[in-house]
Design a protein around this nucleic acid. Structure first.
Lengths: 135, 135
DNA sequence: AAAACCATGTTAGATTTTCTGACATATCAT
DNA sequence: ATGATATGTCAGAAAATCTAACATGGTTTT
């Protein structure tokens, strides 16, 4: 829920950039927002700011519209997808729980060794790396 | 030279976004441009548009300035880095050349098998995937 | 067929953002 | 003290965006 997600949901792009990236008109983009298919952030001056996720969503919308789906349809599709993700997460969750038990055992087994392997884990500090904002 | 690079050098961000991302003032960002440490694209209306690479560069600049390096110093550092990359590429190039010879042989060996393995390589068309613009 | 609805275009006026160029200023080296 | 460097700040102009309203060509519904 952190890391990647924070970055992909970071509000970065003004509507002009989004228009070019998606080849949608400002009118269309705002209209889809009106119908709650997206909800971009706003900056201090009330201008919309879109995230990578928003843009993905707009591309999906565009595609569905090309298939003849209307607003209501798209809204439902997104709902289903969201629920799908929800259950996916729950599955992962429970699987993870199982795994964690054995992981605990593993950790236990490894502990002694580590206690004697005086090795440091220096964190690599690289600078000027925009990738921290994405992926 | 294509793919990734095109994306990371795609002009996307207005100066306001870049200010937030880098915590530099507009004045600073323009000043560095004046000294040719960066050269953002311009849109039709003459507004600057920065790429991910530009932002990386600005973060690097910021860091160097924190270390007390001045414009001239930073310019030189970038020059050296660029040359470094150049020679790196050349090395890779010549290594690749070598490898390609053996690859040719490999291809040769595989050709017959492939000629008989009537298998199709359907390209996966996924939609609404912003990742095509990045990484 | 008429009326209503949907998705989008277009326009207008207000507000925000960005642009360039100029002048101001603090810090540092000479 | 003088000058250079890096940045702040201001002003006026141009561009981008905002909201709200009206216009319109296709679809449905009545």
């Amino acid at each position: 829920m952190s890391g990647k997600e924070i970055r992909r949901s970071m509000p970065l792009f003004p509507i002009g950039t989004v228009m070019q990236l998606t080849e949608l008109s400002a009118r269309q983009i705002r209209y889809y927002e009106e119908h709650q298919l997206i909800s971009p952030a706003r900056n201090q001056g009330n201008r919309r700011l879109y995230s990578l996720n928003d843009i993905d969503r707009l591309l999906e919308i565009k595609d569905l519209i090309d298939q003849g789906v209307n607003m209501a349809g798209i809204k439902q599709i997104f709902l289903v997808k969201q629920q799908q993700e929800q259950t996916n997460n729950e599955q992962q969750q429970s699987e993870k729980a199982k795994r964690e038990l054995t992981d605990d055992q593993l950790r236990h087994l490894l502990r002694n060794e580590l206690m004697h392997s005086g090795r440091f884990n220096r964190s690599t500090l690289r600078q000027g790396d925009m990738s921290r904002f994405f992926h």
